[in-house]
Nucleic acid binder design. Structure first.
Length: 859
RNA sequence: GGGCGCAUAGCUCAGUGGUAGAGCACUCGCCUUACAAGCGAGGGGUCGCAAGUUCGAUCCUUGCUGCGCCCA
């Protein structure tokens, strides 16, 4: 086997991935061996316009780790990929393309435009799917789905019809969030609130006895006011309730009404009421049967007759204020005034609340069921603390506005007759001839909410659906727990007769930079996972993300950390390279005889690591699993076992050592495979001669190999070696410099390791005329060294004094405890014994150190 | 305003009612025949502040301060 000294991921990743896909290793078969338990994850479908960002990379690394481990454990696994059609985003992309040709979608007409979007999708959409291959995602490409493909369209038609017939979908005139740029309704969750600097203007309405001052951040909407509201208990205004005031600039007279929802402490305690342009005012208007006057068109341009007609809403605001000021009606102006403003998630335009006719899902019964599934424990949220957020959302959900005034999307399957009749045909039914279909399309989330079962073939009772529903776990960021996850829960429970769409919801956090800052383009701290894959490899990218992934927690990453992960992969590469160069193998059972205590130690440690890693991965503790494996591989296997094996490989223990080395690397690489699939595949197949590690059995801990004695012995050896290295370092002896030394073991079991110790410490056997200049007693062994010259007494004294100070502090601390009668009486026996042992050890250390100091020549 | 969470090494984070940990960064020394993407050694923390419970608190309780997130 001829491996280069450095691992070059670019040379193996593409080749291995292709081989995996060609071999069908990721393809699920519901008919294969029914005794295998199913394990299924549906991918949170990325936006078809999107490309792989570091958040996806984290999400996918976690899912791939879960699915690959289950595959090795013998589950029938399915990780189902796909994309969503992203109504607004995709339409925007194609409209921008058209704009370059000087066209709008209206120039093409609806049918041609939609065709054009499909063409765009075929040519440029779904870039992310190719990028997922580079990450190593072991998804089943034969089942790739799209929220607008034929099967998913059937699912949408089917569930819409059922909800419609059950009275859970209705059409009504309501105030909704409207984007004046995208020209569509938005649901609550598509609106992002952000602090903005605006103004708070106080305006005097009415005159003389019936005047009242209202404060507003949106002066222009006063043109559509139809009332002023005060709190019923507010003494300041009680005498005005029921009276009318003149609305400035318009000459209209509007009533003063009493409403409990008015906050008397805000502003003047009196609020203007504009039912057509504010959701709270809309409610007040309904309670008091107020008229609703729309003063803007769908683009936010003032339509109210008068001098402001034709002005944009943001031009109208100062114009209205100026006109009021001229009339002496401005009482107070606070500027800047910071307040929360809703923006369109897709284009950042300030959202305009607008009264319009829209379709809604009546969520109350669905949300109740979605909450109960978690309350009853049928669906587990991990980590459990996150459940609070989930309940907060599902228990307070507003009806969901599902209609969008777009062309790209599932068109609402409702047709209108010539006399205003309405019909909702099923997926296999035709609407009556000549009737016209509703022009709106459905919110993208409506089809995404069907994802866990539409991708498995619903509404048909397919073998996939039978075998894999409910899915095993949903992996996603806590940021979309409510809007996407809650919706899948609602629709899954509804469509699948009360069976939940997934058993576990595993949440992770956001990827952040090394200072814990959110990544943002404007801040310039965004990591492109594809660049990391190019520079450090997919494995290093994945390991960096997984290493930071604590359940529900944010994941900080940095370039240096990716380098560290790359280094780790390289370390594995070189450890395996060493093993192969020395004939390591996995043939036959581990020998029961002839194992050194080093062999028994590493095998014992291996079992514990297997058990720990298993526990961590079961609990979605990826950071801990990574930490355990990293530490074992680097600090135990490479730093100690491989070094000790060098001696064993040179004597009669060579054959046994080859088998043990092979054993340790075999299991280690298998455990690492779900986390870093490429390098482990390359190394494991070389080591074992097997076809692939993808379907190799997941290691199981074997308690028979646990060996406490060997562990204690090796720990003792490590302390001995470290102590002598410390002396060498203090004395300025170069690491490679050979030093003659005599080792006096007495009755220490470390005698068996003499050659190993000499090798680790570069100590040669003393020859004629050996004259030691230093003697180190440690771990019951005396090491006498000939440092070939006078030793650095000052350095040695410094070292010994430091150790002595630490030992004295230890004595002081433990003695204080042991002198305390309460401690002796109340502390558990084990704790007392432990402290007694510590005291004895520290006292022995003091004696040893003092005698060493006394023996040092005077400076 | 309501709810939740967090304060531990220079940075990012683990952690436990009984001797403070990791990675990276830092200092010193090394091309030691798997690996300089490496090896060896080392420095660095009154565990946010104050009080309480306890034989014992970084950990439990309360208050304070600072920070973050979600919702309105």
């Amino acid at each position: 086997m001829d491996l280069p000294t450095q691992y070059r991921p670019a040379e193996v990743e593409g080749r291995l991935y292709e081989r995996w896909v060609q071999a069908g290793l990721f393809t699920a078969d519901p008919a294969r061996d029914p005794s295998r338990p199913p394990f299924c994850i549906v991918i949170p479908p990325p936006n078809v316009t999107g490309s792989l960002h570091v958040g996806h990379a984290l999400d996918h690394s976690i899912q791939d780790a879960l699915i690959r481990r289950r595959r090795m454990q013998g589950y029938e696994t399915l990780w189902l990929p796909g994309t969503d059609h992203a109504g607004i985003a995709t339409q925007n992309v194609v409209e921008r393309e058209l704009a370059k040709e000087g066209l709008s979608r209206h120039d093409l007409g609806r049918e041609a435009f939609v065709e054009r979007v499909w063409r765009w999708k075929a040519e440029s959409g779904g870039k992310i799917l190719g990028q997922m291959r580079r990450l190593g995602d072991s998804v089943d490409w034969t089942r790739e789905a799209f929220t607008m493909d034929e099967q998913r369209a059937r699912a949408v038609r089917t569930i819409f019809k059922r909800l419609f017939d059950d009275g859970l979908i209705y059409r009504a005139e309501r105030i909704i969030n409207w984007c004046p740029r995208c020209l569509t309704a938005l649901s609550d969750i598509e609106v992002e609130h952000a602090e903005r600097e605006g103004e708070l203007v106080s305006i005097r309405y009415g005159d003389g006895d019936t005047e009242i001052v209202v404060a507003t951040t949106r002066a222009e909407t006063m043109l559509g006011d139809t009332a002023v509201a005060v709190h019923p208990d507010d003494e300041r205004y009680r005498h005005l309730i029921g009276k009318e005031v003149e609305l400035p600039l318009t000459g209209r007279r509007i009533p003063i009404v009493a409403d409990e929802h008015v906050d008397p402490s805000f502003g003047t305690g009196a609020v203007k009421v504009t039912p057509a342009h504010d959701p709270n005012d809309f409610e007040i208007g309904r309670r008091h049967s107020l008229p609703s006057i729309t003063i803007m068109d769908e683009r936010g341009v003032i339509t109210a007759q008068g001098p402001f007609e034709g002005l944009d809403r943001f031009e109208a605001r100062p114009a209205v204020v100026a006109a009021l000021r001229e009339q002496g009606r401005i009482v107070k102006e606070v500027r800047p005034y910071t307040h929360s403003v809703g923006h369109c998630q897709r284009c950042s335009t300030v959202v305009e609340p607008r009264v319009s006719l829209q379709w809604f899902v009546k969520v109350a019964p669905l949300a109740k069921a979605a909450g109960d599934a978690v309350r009853d424990g049928r669906v587990k949220i991990h980590p459990p603390e996150m459940a609070a957020r989930y309940f907060e959302w599902v228990d307070n959900m507003h009806d969901w506005c599902i209609s969008r005034q777009l062309w790209w999307g599932h068109r609402i399957p409702v047709w209108y007759g010539p006399n205003g009749e309405t019909v909702c045909p099923g997926p296999d039914e035709e609407p009556p001839a000549g009737w016209t279909q509703d022009t709106d399309v459905l919110d993208t989330w409506f089809s995404s909410a069907l994802w866990p079962f539409s991708t498995l073939g619903w509404p048909d009772r397919t073998p996939d659906l039978e075998r894999f529903y409910p899915t095993s776990v949903l992996v996603t960021g806590y940021d979309i727990l409510f809007f996407w996850v809650a919706r899948m829960m609602m629709f899954g429970l509804y469509a699948m007769d009360g069976v939940e769409p997934f058993k576990v919801i595993a949440l992770h956090g956001m990827v952040r930079d090394q200072y814990g800052k959110k990544m943002s383009k404007s801040f310039g701290n965004v990591v492109d996972p594809l660049e990391w894959i190019d520079r450090y490899g997919a494995d290093a990218t994945r390991f960096t993300l997984l290493r930071g992934a604590n359940p529900g927690g944010d994941v900080p990453v940095a370039e240096e950390w990716a380098q560290g992960s790359r280094n780790f992969c390289n370390k594995l590469w070189n450890a395996t390279r060493f093993a192969l160069m020395n004939g390591a193998h996995v043939r036959g059972d581990l020998p029961a005889e002839g194992l050194s205590s080093a062999d028994r130690w590493i095998l014992s440690r291996l079992q514990k690591v297997i058990a720990e890693v298993d526990e961590h991965l079961e609990g979605f503790e990826f950071a801990k699993a990574c930490e355990t494996l990293y530490h074992f591989a680097w600090d135990e296997v490479c730093d100690w076992y491989v070094e000790l094996s060098k001696v064993q490989l040179g004597d009669e223990r060579a054959e046994v050592t080859r088998r043990v080395l092979g054993e340790v690397l075999d299991k280690l690489l298998r455990m690492l495979h779900p986390l870093i699939p490429f390098v482990t595949e390359e190394l494991w197949t070389s080591l074992t001669g097997e076809e692939t590690v993808v379907t190799a059995p997941w290691p199981a801990a074997d308690e028979r190999w646990i060996d406490k004695e060997a562990e204690a012995e090796l720990e003792s050896l490590q302390r001995l070696v470290t102590e002598v290295r410390r002396f060498r370092s203090d004395q300025g002896l170069k690491p490679g410099q050979k030093v003659a030394a005599a080792l006096r073991f007495g009755d220490s079991p470390l005698a068996a390791h003499e050659q190993g110790i000499r090798s680790l410490l570069r100590l040669t056997v003393p020859g004629e005329g050996f004259a030691p200049t230093a003697s180190l007693p440690v771990e019951g062994v005396t090491v006498e060294l000939d440092t070939a010259g006078a030793i650095d007494v000052a350095a040695e004294r410094k070292r010994l004094e430091k150790d002595l100070a630490a030992a004295r502090k230890e004595v002081e601390q433990t003695r204080r405890k042991l002198d305390n009668a309460d401690f002796l009486a109340k502390a558990p026996e084990a704790v007392v014994a432990k402290n007694r042992a510590r005291l004895a050890q520290a006292e022995a250390d003091i004696a040893r150190l003092e005698s060493l100091l006394a023996a040092l020549p005077k400076a």
